[in-house]
Amino acid sequence: MILSKQDISALSKVARLKLINAITGIKPANLIGTISAEGHPNVAVFSSVVHLGSDPALLGFIMRPQGEVPRHTYENILATGHYTINHILPSFAERAHYTSGKFPKEVSEFARCGLTEAYIEGFQAPFVQESSCKMGMRFEEAIPIPLNGTTLIIGAVEHLILPETVDIHQEVFDLEATESMGISGLNSYYTLTKYAEYPYVRPHNIPDFDV
């Protein structure tokens, strides 16, 4: 099957949305927690979190266009300068999914979807208690993407909260062991199974592949 740009444009809005959202493969499944200047907590599911650099430790995520519907996450980040990123696990994936509903700003998705707010001293934004891997983020920059009206939100990692069983000195961070999940499209959730582990690649250690 070969689809041209015209073929893709001719698809129904829903079919096109589902196809293009899924075609990149499995994406990280995270909940982003924020709190408004008035003290209203918010949490919402995102699948666009991406690594931007390790020194300094920077992560980004994509915020959909403003104006279509209120973007409480974005408003809260701008108001307070902080937010959290929390891995989604099978034990609460269904509850996490329903945070994507369009709730009024004064309604807490934590309370409505059966999730628990957690805080650490000196950090304003709420973490998701049920998550095994949590990141406390400081807002650094918002980069508009004129092509489609989205915005790249860039944040610096200020806190990491990890399971006690994780050995941070190992070469590989084992996502299967943390039970972290992935998302395809808008509503398909996947567990992660480690397939293989390969060495850091240098020219001298590349095998002679029989091709």
Rank of each mutant, 00 (worst) to 15 (best):
P104V: 09
G155A: 06
E94D: 13
I35V: 15
A142D: 11
K5D: 06
I20E: 03
H87W: 15
H97R: 13
Q124S: 10
Y195W: 12
T151Q: 05
G53A: 07
D210G: 00
N76E: 01
H97D: 14
E117V: 05
H204M: 00
P28T: 05
Y98P: 02
V14S: 05
Y119M: 04
A96Y: 14
I183F: 05
G101R: 15
E141P: 07
E121P: 10
F173C: 09
I88A: 03
P104S: 11
Q170K: 06
V107M: 15
Y200F: 13
S54D: 11
Y74L: 02
S9H: 08
Y200T: 06
G60M: 10
L59D: 02
L186Y: 15
P207D: 06
I183R: 02
S180I: 04
P70K: 05
E171S: 11
N42V: 03
P41S: 06
M1G: 15
A93V: 08
T151N: 02
L162M: 11
R112V: 14
G185Y: 13
C133F: 14
P199L: 04
Y195V: 15
F61D: 01
G101N: 14
E176K: 10
G122E: 09
K13F: 12
T116D: 12
S91Y: 10
Y119P: 03
T99D: 13
L152Y: 04
E130N: 05
P90Q: 11
A111C: 05
I35K: 02
F127D: 00
T191R: 14
Y119Q: 04
V211C: 00
S54R: 06
V211P: 00
E109Q: 13
G101D: 12
L31G: 09
G155Y: 03
A22K: 08
M135S: 01
